[in-house]
Computed example of a mutant assay.
Amino acid sequence: MAKTNASIAKKARAKAEADFATWLMMAKLGSFEDLPANAQEFLSRYRARFGEMSEAKSKTVAVSEIYLTYYKEMGGTGTAPEPEPRPLSKSPTDDNVVKFQKPRKPDKPAKPAGPAAAKRPIPALLIFAGMVALIAAYKFLAG
Rank of each mutant, 00 (worst) to 15 (best):
S58R: 02
L29Q: 14
A110D: 11
S54C: 04
I127V: 14
K111L: 13
K3F: 07
L141W: 11
R45V: 09
P83A: 09
A37W: 01
S58T: 06
A124E: 14
F128K: 11
P92Q: 05
G51V: 03
F50V: 01
E84I: 05
R120K: 15
I127E: 04
V97G: 01
K57F: 04
A21R: 10
L141N: 06
A9P: 02
P83V: 06
T93K: 13
K111P: 10
D107I: 11
F20N: 04
F32M: 13
F32N: 01
E65Y: 01
S58V: 01
S91C: 07
S89Q: 12
Y70I: 09
K108T: 09
R86A: 15
E84K: 15
K119C: 03
A80E: 05
Y67S: 06
F50Q: 11
N38I: 03
F42I: 15
S44R: 15
K15R: 13
A113D: 11
I135L: 15
R13C: 07
V97D: 06
K99T: 15
A48K: 14
G30N: 07
Y67F: 15
K3Q: 13
V61Y: 06
Y67Q: 05
L141T: 06
T79L: 12
G114I: 04
M26Y: 08
L134H: 00
T79Q: 13
F20M: 09
L126N: 06
D19K: 05
G130S: 09
Y67T: 03
A80R: 02
A2S: 11
S91Q: 10
S7V: 11
V97K: 14
M25G: 03
G130F: 10
P112L: 07
W23P: 01
P109A: 09
T22D: 13
L35P: 08
K15F: 08
P92T: 03
A16G: 04
D34A: 15
K105E: 12
G76T: 02
F100T: 07
F128I: 14
L88G: 07
M1S: 13
A39Q: 05
A117Y: 03
D34H: 08
G30C: 07
A118N: 10
Y138V: 06
P83W: 04
I66K: 07
R49P: 00
A14G: 09
E65M: 10
R104M: 06
T77Y: 03
M1E: 12
P106F: 01
Q101D: 08
F42K: 03
S54K: 10
L134Y: 04
L68R: 12
E84V: 10
M1G: 14
S64Y: 02
K90D: 09
K102M: 10
Y70K: 06
R47E: 15
N5F: 02
L68P: 00
A117M: 05
